[in-house]
Write a protein that binds this DNA or RNA. Structure first.
Lengths: 226, 226
DNA sequence: GGCGACATTCAGCTGGCGTTAAGGTTCGTC
DNA sequence: GACGAACCTTAACGCCAGCTGAATGTCGCC
């Protein structure tokens, strides 16, 4: 169990990647690396990180473009941009394109860590958060859901699964991604826990005959949609 | 034991933070600092302070926005706002957004202390304060509870625990938060005092077969809700 | 200093929750 | 329309977080 915070580091410079990875891993984050914009976008889709540390200058798809595409895809992940010099132009462009903060190279690891913390704090849990989708609402503070007025008690695992789905509405989440997020499995062995918990949730969410929100995508995973 | 009063100081200026922290700590308050609006919101959630001293002008999420979000989240903590000059506009905006008082920079520490005391007095024990939730009432002055007419005597610890719960209805309070508030533990060792006191409270609150108000959230903590 | 009230610890217990497994059903493919 | 794979359904099992009751510790007060 236990949703470790995930950080994706996209930079073509292996040194930067290594420093950032080691440091953040030591702080307890799960770190994934990508050496290019293309790879970064792929890993973002694959791992659903909470934060992306993103170099602005890269061959191929650069940081600005990565940001643009992530946002265009509806991804609201926190983005921390790394710029080579203090180019106001870069900063402005970056923020305009949807980055949340930026950091000028060279930087000390402590500086980076401070920004990372700040961003995750801002994003991770805006107190009083109530996630909504269609007629479904999830009160994160109270750890309870409600649908069409009716309140629904959730166990820890059910809550964790529904939270993940609600954070990525209309996106197909693969079984692997879900397993990794809700169960922290690198698991080899087969298990059908996920299916069982999808069923539990469906039962609770459709108890009064409401239409299905959690849909199965055969061969892929599950989606939250009407 | 002993519920020390908690003050959260949110200001991007380290000097201000230091002055306020030292001064208030000397007066016996527990002080937590935050250097930004983001961090402030996070610390507020984490420590559940009784009072927030809040700079209005900060990069990122400013004081007005912090106030707005706290209030939006249903947090009724006392808020003392610091404004740079005597800008009537700021003051009005601040109070409109839910601040309780304001103080113009620069200020002497004694001025600050006076406001802090005033706010805490007004809030902590507006004589005759009675907290209510469902059919439960807690008379803070008399230190006694009542449910459905029946009055209930409480010991100090029971009172302290129930008070905390009543100040944050429908919010899941983690065991750590509760321990910190009611027992002031940084405790390492295991202890099940919390469970024992939850039981005492439940026994007293449900003595006539009333429905449960204090609910267990497995792996997390407790909530007050119907 | 002894008594009563309250706080804390302890050890055994319990039930809710997470997991597994076995059989059923649906879907895509040929 | 038959077959296998992917997914659903139901039930049973076992563990551990939290519950319980009683014993022990601590403090203030007469």
């Amino acid at each position: 169990m236990s949703e470790a915070t995930r950080v994706l580091v996209i930079d073509d410079d292996p040194k930067i990647r290594t420093v950032v990875r080691r440091g953040l891993a030591y702080e307890g984050y799960r770190v994934v690396e990508a050496a290019s914009g293309e790879e970064g976008l792929e890993k973002a889709r694959e791992h659903l990180p909470d934060l992306v540390v993103l170099d602005i200058m890269m061959p191929g798809i650069d940081g600005l473009e990565v940001t643009r595409r992530l946002r265009a895809a509806g991804d609201e992940v926190a983005i921390l941009m790394l710029t080579a010099r203090d180019e106001v132009k870069d900063r402005v462009e970056g923020l305009e394109n949807g980055a949340d903060d930026y950091l000028v190279k060279p930087f000390s690891f402590e500086e980076l860590l401070a920004r990372v913390h700040a961003l995750l704090r801002r994003r991770a849990a805006p107190s009083g958060e109530v996630l909504r989708f269609a007629d479904l609402a999830l009160d994160v503070d109270a750890r309870e859901a409600s649908r069409a007025g009716r309140t629904i008690d959730l166990t820890t695992t059910e809550f964790s699964l529904l939270l993940l789905l609600l954070r990525h509405p209309r996106k197909v989440l693969t079984r692997d991604v879900i397993m990794e997020h809700v169960w922290s499995y690198d698991f080899e062995g087969e298990s059908n826990v996920l299916e069982v918990y999808v069923r539990y949730l469906r039962n609770k969410l459709e108890a009064s005959g409401e239409p299905r929100l959690i849909h199965t995508i055969r061969g892929a995973g599950y989606v939250l949609k009407e």
